[in-house]
């Protein structure tokens, strides 16, 4: 029984998530569960709360109500009605359970590609330098950036920077990868090199939650697509069903305006 239950434990579980920015409620009760190996894309117009939801998962935003669990572990807040935030060291440890890739890459400009990837391995995972370098080089090779390991971010194109940023995140072997509109800041001709890397990772069975405006990509890569609207999940399902046969009027309108 208990073994079966643990098999059923979702890698990521979001329950009744509410988030307010001073007066505006941007998340009005979001529920989402992901099993190991799931690839879930979140679509929706800007301001629908997709990015905010993602940022709550690795505690870059606080939230006022609800629970987020990773592998059954409560994220961010201590149990109890007063919702005390967890200690900083604890939060840092929990953040390392997720890997985040940002729209603006956010590589550390004063470190080489290799340095960007090894930093977390040596400082958070406390691996010895040579082990960290071996892991980092493995992942840089995986994203096709091994030959640029000594380059600084300023010497790389946007697509190359984003691939290094992906390597930096996956090298920490997170339980869930979070992608926040990772191709939105890229020139059109650089989008595919990044999407291909993500596809390859999805093929490896990595659990991924993606916020994206790339409908075709969401269609191809996802096990499930979630449509968010005004702080709620309006509709979700397999990509074929959701895209071909939207149930809600809003999703139909959104897909039409996204010209899918």
């Amino acid at each position: 029984m208990s073994e079966e239950a643990s098999l059923e434990t979702p890698v990521l579980q979001i329950e009744n998530l509410h988030k307010k920015f001073t007066h505006v409620e941007v998340l009005k009760g979001v529920d989402l569960a992901m099993k190991s190996g799931d690839v879930v894309s979140v679509i929706g117009s800007s301001g629908s709360g997709k990015t905010t939801m993602l940022r709550c998962v690795n505690m870059l935003e606080d939230f006022q109500e609800g629970h987020i669990r990773i592998d059954g572990e409560e994220i961010g807040y201590l149990p109890g009605p007063d919702r005390k935030p967890k200690k900083e060291v604890e939060v840092a440890r929990q953040r390392a359970m997720t890997g985040m890739v940002f729209q603006q890459f956010n590589l550390f400009p004063h470190m080489t590609a290799l340095g960007n990837v090894t930093l977390g391995l040596t400082k958070v995972k406390k691996l010895p330098q040579d082990e960290a370098v071996a892991i980092a080089e493995k992942w840089l090779a995986r994203v096709g950036m091994l030959d640029r390991r000594g380059h600084y971010p300023g010497q790389l194109s946007g697509g190359q920077q984003q691939r290094v940023a992906i390597a930096r995140a996956v090298a920490m072997s997170p339980k869930v990868m979070l992608f926040d509109e990772v191709t939105s800041a890229l020139d059109p001709e650089l989008v595919n090199e990044v999407l291909n890397v993500i596809k390859a990772l999805a093929g490896d069975g990595m659990t991924m939650l993606l916020v994206t405006h790339e409908m075709k990509f969401a269609f191809e890569v996802s096990d499930r697509v979630v449509f968010m609207n005004q702080g709620r999940i309006e509709e979700q399902g397999k990509p074929e069903e959701l895209f071909r046969n939207p149930q809600s009027k809003r999703l139909a309108e959104f897909l039409k305006s996204a010209q899918f």
Binding site: N58, A92, F102, N106, F108, G120, A169, M172
Partner: peptide
């Protein structure tokens, strides 16, 4: 984004 990226990989 620098601080956020640093936090995201688990740095205190």
């Amino acid at each position: 984004g620098q601080m956020e990226a640093a936090k995201a990989i688990g740095l205190t």
